[in-house]
Design a binder for these strands. Structure first.
Lengths: 224, 224
DNA sequence: ATAAAACTTGACGAAATTTTGACATTTACC
DNA sequence: GGTAAATGTCAAAATTTCGTCAAGTTTTAT
């Protein structure tokens, strides 16, 4: 995925330079040299915002507060001074990190990546689902039974994710297909039967217990 | 609904900051700077707990175990280090998620909301119809008589659902057929008679009482 | 390019459900 | 009591659904 970064700073020299380097690192970059411009460019849906605190007119903190009402993404402040109070101020308005000028490019890139990674990992809802001694880690898509990993393929995990995230509810095959594949199944969904079977085998082999129950004529349900 | 969040951490700076932001996001916040304080504040009935793992005295894991004996709510660990083993440990004692320090505020909020949503979903009272000691769970499609489950087939349950949801009303066979099958019956509806019979037998066997009454010449009705 | 893994499909038997039809029983009304 | 209509019962037939296997196709990794 190509991430979009919005740089907001009133010094064209700096934004130019940053823009060049970030593009060089594979990012799509948008530049705003004023607060107004920044707000106008929110429609670009940036994945991350670099925001100068000291700007004429509306300053970065004020701007940050407004941005927060519009979109959710990491906001990194660029600033010369940084005191404890600054940090608190920045966090109060919804900032995620600080980078003090002058900063090394490597450092900047590293921080940007860290935030993007984290953002991606964590905007996903419930991290972990536990169920009868089973640990299902939704973010790294792994399943453990007593420290022992059980490996599942993509589809298999998708189904497990869907069912275990909605425990005790019955879903018919069409519903599962729709949830996992993203579109409706055409004819008979033997696919589901087969995947459910594979999942059951793996789970049974290592854990020795049933997790997916069949409700005859209705569908399947994750027992919890 | 205003959710209540309990923050447990021995660093006053962090708890202060978090408290401020969470309140800003509309949450009611309680702070505990020690394990003892945390236990004392459980009577505030928090909807979610943020729990630092590394604390002097009783650590977060130990605390979590104890909390679990008192209340049920999502517990999110705040921790610097995080290994697979940590996750397992945390989950063993009943934790629901991990957030590694340092974390972005957006991330934290997102996770909190995800868990609260999830919790709400799970704790949502199921649609239940009760009737003379019988419990009919419409969402799980299960019927209980004194903790004992009575299993019904799809059609059987559909009929029970229809009748019990409209208690004391009389429906003739055609009407029931239409409601359950979705289209009109063709010839004679002996099907209904038969299903009603099966249902009656099962209900009578375990509960010993009649639930479906025959109104001669009119139809059937669910007694309530 | 090749091998391995994952995904999909069709077929078949087993199991459970649903429907049917014949017959018994009950009810309302004469 | 007799009768016809409505309902109840039972077993068997018909249907649907499910689990499983094997084989084919696509995707992924090397």
């Amino acid at each position: 995925m190509v991430y979009r970064i919005l740089i907001v700073d009133d010094e064209p020299i700096l934004t130019e330079l940053l823009s060049f380097h970030l593009q060089d690192h594979g990012y799509t970059v948008f530049v705003a040299n004023s607060s107004d411009e920044a707000l106008a460019k929110l429609n670009k849906k940036p994945n991350l915002i670099l925001l100068d605190i000291n700007m004429p007119g509306m300053d970065g903190l004020e701007l940050c507060k407004i941005i927060r009402n519009h979109i959710v993404c990491p906001i990194l402040f660029l600033t010369a001074r940084i005191t404890e109070q600054d940090k608190v101020n920045g966090l109060r308005v919804g900032g995620d990190d600080y980078i003090t000028k002058p900063f090394g490019l490597q450092e900047l890139i590293a921080r940007i990546e860290a935030h993007l990674r984290r953002d991606e990992r964590n905007n996903r809802p419930p991290e972990i689902v536990t169920s009868q001694g089973l640990i299902i880690n939704l973010s790294d898509r792994k399943v453990f039974w007593n420290e022992q990993e059980i490996s599942f393929s993509k589809r298999e995990f998708d189904i497990i994710e869907f069912l275990s995230s909605n425990p005790n509810q019955v879903f018919d095959k069409e519903r599962i297909y729709e949830a996992v594949w993203g579109y409706d199944a055409e004819g008979d969904s033997n696919v589901i039967k087969e995947h459910i079977r594979k999942i059951r085998v793996k789970l049974m082999q290592t854990s020795g217990s049933e997790y997916i129950e069949t409700i005859w004529g209705m569908g399947y349900r994750w027992k919890k």
